[in-house]
């Protein structure tokens, strides 16, 4: 005979729960299985699971929560520190960044600075200054040639490769190429050569300094504005190499010298608006012939 508890796969569970029908129960209670299971059930209910200390566990969990939170906090803190440092460095770099103006061969450019000073750049020149807070410390780095009209104010300093030009408010021209020349057209300028042993040179209107053989020479000159501003380069008893260099600043050319003596002295001028004329007015009087090379911009010189 197949008993209920074998046929019905929920029978025993319902017996335990006390949800058998009366008939089912009475029938079941007559079996040996019932007697055995009663004892198993009874004994099982006397069993006990593990002892668990909830309070200790809660303490542990709160410790875990706090360590995790602290870790993320510390982590986040370092993150913030790193981010802040990056921002500060970035800001520093940015605030410390320079604004640079450059002119190419034959180009000129007029730059008006924040204080109203105007700097006219001649060809192949470079001027740079701090982008921010420049007015607190008027200082520019400069190479090439430029005419400075400086607004009155605190010291205005031009750093060149040969030395510093310090002014209060004045007009002057700096030429810092293979040779250095500073001309003062208005007011007062002081020039401090990089060679510290030399005394600063004070220039007033109509005075210029040159550097020859590492010595600062002070000479008078007589002109209202720099020649280059008129589109002219003038030379007075200057070596030919200065003239050739100047030509290469104004015109996109390169000279091939072929053993020409470039130390011979030249006096004269050339204009900036016509290469052919410029070459002719400078080279012909020196007895130098010239021809275009294979490359467009190469000028081959010969005696």
């Amino acid at each position: 005979m197949i008993e209920n508890y074998d046929a019905d796969d929920t029978f025993l569970a319902r017996w335990i729960a006390g949800t058998l029908t009366k008939e089912e129960r009475i029938g079941f209670e007559k079996t040996d299985t019932y007697k055995q299971l009663s004892i198993i059930n009874r004994e099982s209910q006397l069993l006990k699971g593990p002892d668990i200390n909830t309070d200790t566990a809660l303490e542990k969990v709160k410790q875990k929560i706090n360590t995790k939170r602290n870790k993320t906090k510390v982590f986040r803190l370092w993150y913030s520190v790193a981010a802040a440092a990056a921002v500060l460095i970035g800001l520093g770099v940015f605030l410390n960044s320079s604004k640079t103006y450059t002119t190419g061969i034959g180009e000129t450019m007029s730059v008006t600075l924040a204080d109203g000073s105007i700097i006219d750049l001649n060809a192949n020149s470079k001027l740079s200054h701090k982008r921010f807070f420049w007015e607190n410390n008027r200082e520019v780095d400069f190479t090439g040639e430029a005419y400075f009209v400086v607004k009155k104010g605190d010291d205005f300093v031009v750093s060149t490769s040969k030395g510093k030009v310090e002014v209060l408010g004045t007009e002057f021209n700096i030429k810092d190429r293979s040779y250095f020349e500073l001309k003062c057209y208005e007011g007062k300028v002081s020039f401090i050569n990089n060679n510290f042993s030399s005394e600063p040179s004070i220039l007033t209107k109509g005075m210029k300094v040159l550097i020859e053989e590492n010595k600062v020479k002070k000479i008078d000159f007589n002109e209202e504005t720099p020649d280059w501003k008129q589109g002219i380069s003038k030379f007075k008893n200057q070596p030919l190499m200065d003239v050739l260099e100047e030509l290469q600043q104004i015109y996109p050319i390169t000279f091939q010298l072929n053993n020409i003596d470039t130390s011979r002295i030249f006096s004269g001028s050339f204009r900036h608006d016509n290469l052919k004329n410029a070459l002719q007015t400078t080279l012909s009087p020196m007895g130098i012939t010239y021809q275009k090379g294979s490359k467009n911009n190469l000028i081959i010189l010969s005696e």
Partner: peptide, 22 residues
């Protein structure tokens, strides 16, 4: 759950029944 419970009881009886003398 009822099926699992019933099965568990059946298995326990099978294993322990011989130890319960009636």
């Amino acid at each position: 759950i009822e099926r699992r419970m019933s099965k568990a009881l059946k298995e326990l009886r099978e294993v322990l029944g011989k130890d319960i003398k009636i």
